[in-house]
Amino acid sequence: MKKKLTTIPFKGTQAQEAQLDELIAKNKDIPGALMPVLQGAQEIYGYLPQEIIRHIALGMDKSVSEVYGVASFYSQFTLTPKGEFAVSICLGTACYVKGSGKLMEEFEKELGIKAGETTADGKFSLTDTRCIGACGLAPVLTVNSDVYGRLTPAEVKGIVDKYR
């Protein structure tokens, strides 16, 4: 799948940068250490901002295109920040059969973003997940740690309004 890029401005602290620089210094001379550095960076920032990919490239003495290539290859890396409220909709078999695809469409319409994206104000992010083990509640979704089950597309607006 094509990796989504964000337009949300990067916000990072000095403490985060110090932590990242320490990680880079530790891995700089180890062949093949780009992956653990990217994993560490995602732990520090929650995602891989463009500024951080550049910073890592400079620190690891690699071209930005090479680091971006790795970051955009692996599905575990995300290039967009999670929203304040992270909506994840289960697209596992049971939920999908029960119409979670329709829920996704409704959320995309309501929030004006596609799956994998975050709203420009940083409030909502939308992702799909595989089975979360609550098939009895299908179709099911979570907003941060709140769980919503047995939903219809008509209920989507109400859920979004609760967090707006």
Partner: peptide, 28 residues
């Protein structure tokens, strides 16, 4: 990519994304 990266040490382009979506382009 090899010419840009290995021959010239510039790396303006790389292979982005994966599978069917893989394509050669600059970062971001």
């Amino acid at each position: 990519i090899a010419a840009c990266r290995s021959l010239q040490d510039i790396g303006a382009i790389g292979a982005n994304d994966r599978g069917f979506d893989t394509h050669v382009a600059p970062a971001f």
